[in-house]
Design a protein around this nucleic acid. Structure first.
Lengths: 267, 267
DNA sequence: AGTATTTTTTGGGAAGAGCCACAACACGAC
DNA sequence: GTCGTGTTGTGGCTCTTCCCAAAAAATACT
């Protein structure tokens, strides 16, 4: 027997690995690679798709580029439009020729996509591998990546090294995401990220928090910033009644794209 | 007239934008969105694909995202079998519980894949985003990423920051790729990488150079190491006549998997 | 060992996507 | 207006992919 067969789980791992390297794989391709039937690969893909580890597509599978948490996937898919508006709007806040720090996360990634697309000339310092790769696409962007321990879940680095590194730079603005915004302030679910976000805040003249409306009122484990420390809140919608009052009181600048209904939506 | 028709260029932009947001779009989807025939969309995709702005796929198009760098991907598809043998073999050299540095490149990526697959308990320091992502998959691996300027072409960081960072660590071994190996020594085509490779060499007790046979006899611009400095050469085949003699003379340990035909090839 | 369970292959029909060549349409120049 | 160029739509055909169900093989269990 010359070629031993891959076991199911081995194929699954290989497929995911493959998707880390290219955005799209074809069923036929994988079948040949593994030496199995396309039907088998199809089943593999179906399994992985059910677990939210990849996106199915006709003829193959695509990476779930968000790097977002599996559990939040459903919500992520409902709020695509919102996140997109937020990202596009936030990207418009970046001045030509400026330097910024960009945090890791699904929202900031969306922001990075629009920024790359706009080809704004800008220097970016980030701890997110995804953000680095996205912005690296744009020839107008200089990207510096922070060091640190690699967190596969979020495709980002964290830790003291990361914070120390950030402390060496002073930038015009930072763009930070978060899991929750409430009267308590900005909070984050994933430990380790808090420190990085705070380090970014310290080094930036302007602070932009990219938080979509679904996170309003939520409080998570670690506090990232008190309300006073938030420079501006960038969101897809303005916060409503109780929260908006508190925010205004504490001097938070609230920015959102929802005024301009003018241009007939084209997308 | 309610819905004005998109012009060609507008569609092109929209398609690219769409791909920034999701990794894969379908022809049929886009056709409906634009209100044109699938045939037209197909033509659009073909145009964009010709310019290398996206990857074609059956049923649609994929983003040329992060990691799908043409040359890197193309290289990955050349000499697959050789590279694979090399990678698998090199991965077997890593001792359980050790710490290593891993260079950027197509060959070291393959090595990383097998190392991740083997789930060897190991601490890895790298300047390659791809290597970090691949090894991050393995729960047994601790990954630290070096800082520096991001090079989209290779999905790696380089520069003085990178080298300075590496100087802070001392590891058991380093695994370094290269574009050429000749009597002159190990040489590299891409400037900036040489310094990083040398920095890794300095901090490692053992040095493994992962160089496949197709690179024997080649000399490139910047010198990475003289023959004396090479610890061991890991390759898919033993070097032949003129080169092998010189290498032996200069104390290079030559390792390659071609003796052990035992384990049936797995892919 | 032998049986049970999971996994993979096989085959065939339906749906989708691709490709090609030619017709239809738009736009600008003259 | 006519012409020419470039773009888009149409119809016919082929190939690929999908999905389903049943047979075959591999694996796990006792």
């Amino acid at each position: 027997m010359t070629t031993r067969r891959y076991k199911k789980q081995e194929r699954h791992e290989q497929i995911l690995l493959e998707l880390k390297l290219k955005p799209h794989v074809r069923v036929a391709e994988l079948a040949k690679q593994f030496g199995v039937t396309t039907e088998t690969v199809r089943r593999d893909i179906e399994d992985l798709g059910r677990d939210g580890l990849l996106q199915r597509a006709h003829g193959g599978a695509s990476a779930r580029h968000a790097g977002a948490h599996h559990d939040l996937d459903a919500r992520r898919h409902q709020r695509v439009a919102e996140r997109e508006r937020l990202g596009r709007f936030a990207a418009s806040l970046v001045a030509e020729g400026s330097s910024i720090m960009v945090d890791a996360g699904a929202t900031t990634m969306e922001f990075a996509r629009f920024l790359a697309f706009a080809e704004t000339r800008v220097t970016v310092i980030t701890n997110s591998l995804q953000v680095a790769m996205i912005l690296g696409q744009s020839p107008a962007t200089d990207v510096r990546l922070a060091p640190g321990e690699y967190l596969p879940r979020e495709a980002a680095v964290v830790g003291t090294e990361t914070c120390e590194y950030l402390a060496n730079y002073n930038v015009d603005a930072c763009f930070i995401g978060a899991a929750g915004l409430s009267e308590v302030g900005v909070t984050e679910a994933i430990a380790g990220f808090g420190a990085v976000k705070r380090a970014m805040m310290r080094q930036s003249r302007a602070r932009h928090f990219l938080i979509d409306a679904s996170k309003f009122g939520q409080t998570h484990m670690t506090r990232v910033a008190s309300l006073d420390e938030i420079g501006s809140l960038v969101s897809d919608r303005h916060p409503t009644a109780p929260l908006s009052g508190v925010l205004r009181e504490r001097g938070v600048r609230m920015l959102s794209p929802d005024i301009q209904k003018s241009a007939p939506a084209r997308v």
